[in-house]
């Protein structure tokens, strides 16, 4: 079981007059196969948090620890833009982040997750030959194909049209249910957070963790469902109370 521990985390960028505090006094524990959403206005440090957890950035002070049964956990990451290598085919893009890219097992695994995002026949295409929505699905398949213990997702659907985003949300949730893992999902869309997650972390400007909300409704959650609508309204109310601009 994956475990994330964040202890008094602080992150600053720049020095002197240019100094920006992206995160401060963040204390947090996440455990098990939960779907955690991170919401907050733009610039409140959401991406920075994922980047520190995934090792792209280092903390200015404090500690983060991600373990899977006491070992270092295996991470996956889905970015806001797909971030595919344009000079490699879809299949090679998936293989690129595999531990054993030359093995038959890895290839079979990648094919399995391409099938899951309905791109099973696009393995030998180059990313530039696919639509934006398809590229994003390749990014999702790539992250799932490393069979991560912890999956980071940074506003993965925000560039997509509403219909594509909706169907990808459903696919993502089915894959989460089928494979079981800890997901940290950044979004600035409160509705999306309520529909998808067990737990919602609310960040405010200056990178402070303001609220930690449990959403205990059964999945799948339909946006039209009354309970879901009520939960959304409650979270939005908290947003207003905290004086956060929900964009």
């Amino acid at each position: 079981m994956a475990q994330i521990k964040i202890d008094n985390l602080r992150k600053e960028f720049g020095v002197g007059d240019d100094k920006v505090v992206a995160l401060q006094n963040v204390n947090l524990e996440i455990e098990g196969d939960v779907f955690v959403s991170i919401v907050g206005p733009s610039g409140c440090g959401k991406s920075t948090l994922l980047n520190i957890l995934s090792g792209i950035e280092t903390p200015s002070s404090g500690k983060v620890e991600i373990t899977q049964d006491r070992h270092d956990a295996n991470p996956g990451y889905v970015f806001q833009a797909a971030r595919l290598l344009p000079w490699r085919t879809v299949m090679d893009n998936l293989l690129f982040v595999q531990k054993d890219p030359d093995s038959e097992e890895a290839r079979a695994r990648c094919q399995k997750y391409l099938d899951m995002v309905h791109l099973g026949d696009k393995g030998d295409k180059y990313p530039g030959e696919l639509s934006g929505g398809m590229q994003q699905r390749v990014g999702i398949a790539r992250a799932f194909a490393v069979e991560p213990d912890v999956l980071f997702m940074d506003e993965p659907f925000s560039h997509l049209d509403a219909i594509t985003a909706r169907s990808l949300r459903r696919e993502l949730h089915e894959m989460w249910a089928a494979t079981g893992k800890t997901i940290l999902f950044v979004t600035h869309d409160v509705g999306e957070a309520v529909e998808l997650s067990n737990r919602i972390l609310v960040f405010a400007k200056g990178g402070k963790l303001e609220d930690d909300i449990n959403v205990e409704l059964p999945f799948p959650r339909d946006a039209a469902n009354e309970e879901v609508a009520v939960a959304k309204a409650q979270v939005l109310k908290k947003f207003e109370d905290l004086d956060l601009v929900a964009t």
């Binding site: 980047n51 995934s54 090792g55 792209i56 295996n74 991470p75 996956g76 990451y77 970015f79 833009a81 971030r83 290598l85 000079w87 490699r88 690129f96 982040v97 890219p101 490393v146 980071f152």
Partner: peptide, 24 residues
């Protein structure tokens, strides 16, 4: 940088990063 960060996040080995991102 976005691709290199991506590779870093997945823990891709340095040599493979050079061969598949930097050189192309």
């Amino acid at each position: 940088k976005d691709l290199i960060d991506m590779a870093k996040a997945f823990g891709t080995p340095q040599l493979r990063r050079q061969r598949e991102i930097v050189i192309p």
